[in-house]
Design a protein around this nucleic acid. Structure first.
Lengths: 200, 200
DNA sequence: AAATATACAAAAAACGATTATTGTTCATTC
DNA sequence: GAATGAACAATAATCGTTTTTTGTATATTT
């Protein structure tokens, strides 16, 4: 078995128009009916392609579903990455991630799924792999903040990444944990404090 | 309606032996069969009391179930409170909370429920009220740390409480967020860093 | 070479009938 | 006065059956 064959279902090629047609149709169906009530035949009908083609690109329904969400996440990370480049500080970047993360949860496929299958959304949120995919996202920004002197030179990248991700995940998943951080301004002030000085 | 009648199902009296017999039986059933497969009749049988008595103390099955978990949480908070008194610093206290929180999740009613009804556990974890009950737990410890000079005098209690709780919840719920904080020593070092200095 | 269409057994969902559980009431017992 | 036990309609779970969907294979089309 070659490396390409081995990876055929693991890494999805977002340049392949067929892949995107399938994912588009899949996302549309999940958005409208939820995961449980989405049949592969319906995805095929919506995407105007054959059921067989779907199985050529995705091992099974679970792979398709996870493909839909992974593409969403990749899209979020790409959009965020682009936006972060224009922001001066790590705190600004983190603030932006939290605000746009909340937006995504409130309006897209997550919001509709949360209504029809809240348990599924809850399971996804607690799935470690859901966050692990973002672990490689932050280090470059942290290194930059380190060079610029925004954060301490002694901090190791792994610790900083872990901390930043915990803050982001926590603030997106639990908007109110005693404090009610609603506005971008409030979120930024809070993050400025805890990131740069902790409680010290 | 008097205040007592009004509160009869809201606040549970843990001194009432009947209440505890019901909660004991309920917890035992949930532990063995899960929530869905636990019938009120079975709880009555296990607790050696009548079904009617249960409904005298708990409005419905949902109230009983939430009563079981609230008692567990109260127990956890009481045990933790006692343990924290002996610990010198806020960081030590937080470390202890995380370690014992993880233990509770790994062995008690949560662990068994996670096997039979993972979606239910996931939903509970994401339920804001699950954490809101602990909001009043931390402020005294934070005020003390402030007086002792462990944390800054300028920090307001609400911000510090929010931050401490986010760290605790995050570290219990997601053991590994890039960094794999396993031992008490590792957890303590991590918390020492982020609580006292953030990334500065 | 990739997409389609069809066929197929195995697995899962939908359905309707049956049984169990819930939540309430009230007379009886402790 | 509180706990019990029995009765009850309404609701929810279970069960066996039917129907749909899944995942695979293969011949056919683009």
């Amino acid at each position: 078995m070659t490396a390409t064959e081995q990876d055929q279902f693991n890494s999805v090629d977002y340049n392949d128009p067929m892949v995107n047609r399938i994912l588009d149709a899949g996302e549309q169906c999940i958005h409208r009916f939820g995961i449980r009530r989405t049949a592969m035949g319906e995805v095929a009908r919506v995407g105007k392609l054959s059921r067989g083609s779907i199985y050529r690109y995705f091992a099974d329904k679970e792979a398709l579903v996870s493909g839909v969400f992974q593409r969403r996440q990749a899209l979020y990370l790409n959009r965020t990455e682009a936006a972060l480049e224009k922001l001066p500080t790590l705190v600004d970047k983190l603030t932006h991630s939290v605000v746009s993360g909340r937006q995504d949860m409130a309006e897209g496929i997550f919001a509709s799924l949360a209504e029809t299958e809240p348990e599924t959304v809850a399971m996804m949120f607690l799935e470690p792999s859901f966050y692990q995919r973002s672990v490689s996202f932050w280090p470059p920004h942290i290194e930059l903040a380190k060079r610029e002197g925004e954060i301490g030179a002694a901090i190791d990248i792994e610790t900083a990444t872990d901390f930043i991700m915990r803050l982001a995940v926590s603030l997106v998943t639990f908007p109110d944990m005693g404090l009610n951080l609603k506005s971008r301004k409030d979120i930024r002030r809070y993050l400025q404090q805890v990131v740069s000085r902790g409680l010290g």
